[in-house]
């Protein structure tokens, strides 16, 4: 497998955790109470830690003296390969939890499969990540249940978030060209095979939470091709601000 394809494959996984980590870190200090504030920050820390492992590996593969920060901060919007789901804004806590829940279920399945990769570095990152993401999934599932089966207001709010965010879930299971090449080489995961388990897991929790998956005919996609929502540019202006304003400096 060519390095370039592997690098792109890594971006496809790593950009999701970077962007979701960035979104969660916006909340630090503004949570509904101290305990959830600390928990959300924990998840952000895990995700950003994973991001670093992926990017350090990608930087090493690309040679050229690249660093993790070049990859994180100095690409253009079209070069980020995260799915649309993770860049959706923190409209309210119901959105934060629903976005997390919809991603965590996928993330855990993905890492479980990635453990079987022929690429030792990816296997190591996946193994470490599984422990963290299992916790994330437990946290977001518990909160989905609390909000769904809590008060009338919380039920309404979290259902509203689900109705809105569900249309972004299909994209998680689309295979890009780089995904296909990685799969053929025994490095990548066949995400197509994860969808059934994913739907099962999601339904289980939503049933308990008395929430329903909306009937959706039209799903949104584009992130994996670098075609993002209008939110992405603003997220990147924050993320890249220092590196763009003060190029080539050490921090």
């Amino acid at each position: 497998m060519k390095n370039e394809n592997l690098i792109q494959y890594i971006y496809g996984i790593a950009d999701n955790v970077l962007i979701l980590g960035q979104r969660l870190s916006e909340l630090c200090g503004h949570g509904p109470n101290l305990e959830t504030d600390i928990a959300c920050t924990n998840i952000a820390l895990d995700l950003l830690g994973q991001t670093r492992s992926y990017y350090q590996y990608a930087a090493q593969l690309s040679g050229e003296g690249k660093t993790e920060d070049d990859i994180a901060f100095l690409r253009n919007e079209r070069q980020y390969k995260n799915v649309l789901l993770v860049e959706q804004p923190n409209r309210h806590f119901g959105y934060v939890i629903t976005r997390q829940f919809l991603f965590d279920a996928f993330h855990l399945l993905l890492l479980e499969e990635l453990q079987n990769s022929k690429d030792d570095t990816l296997v190591a990152i996946a193994k470490k990540g599984i422990k963290e993401v299992s916790y994330h999934q437990r946290f977001s599932s518990d909160w989905i249940k609390r909000l769904g089966d809590g008060t009338q207001e919380s039920h309404k709010k979290v259902q509203e978030a689900l109705d809105d965010l569900w249309r972004f879930t299909n994209e998680l299971f689309l295979m890009t060209e780089d995904d296909k090449i990685a799969l053929e080489n025994g490095v990548g995961v066949n995400v197509l095979t994860l969808q059934e388990k994913y739907n099962q897991r999601i339904k289980e929790v939503l049933d308990e939470a008395t929430l329903t998956i909306p009937e959706t005919k039209y799903f949104q996609k584009g992130g994996k091709q670098g075609i993002h929502s209008e939110h992405m540019g603003y997220l990147l202006s924050d993320l890249q601000y220092m590196q763009r304003t003060y190029p080539n400096m050490k921090w």
Partner: peptide
Amino acid sequence: WITRAPSLRRKVALLAKVQDEAG
């Protein structure tokens, strides 16, 4: 400054620090 920290290392350290304050 968490969302605008200049490097991944600094971002993680700042996030952890602010989380310590919450603790």
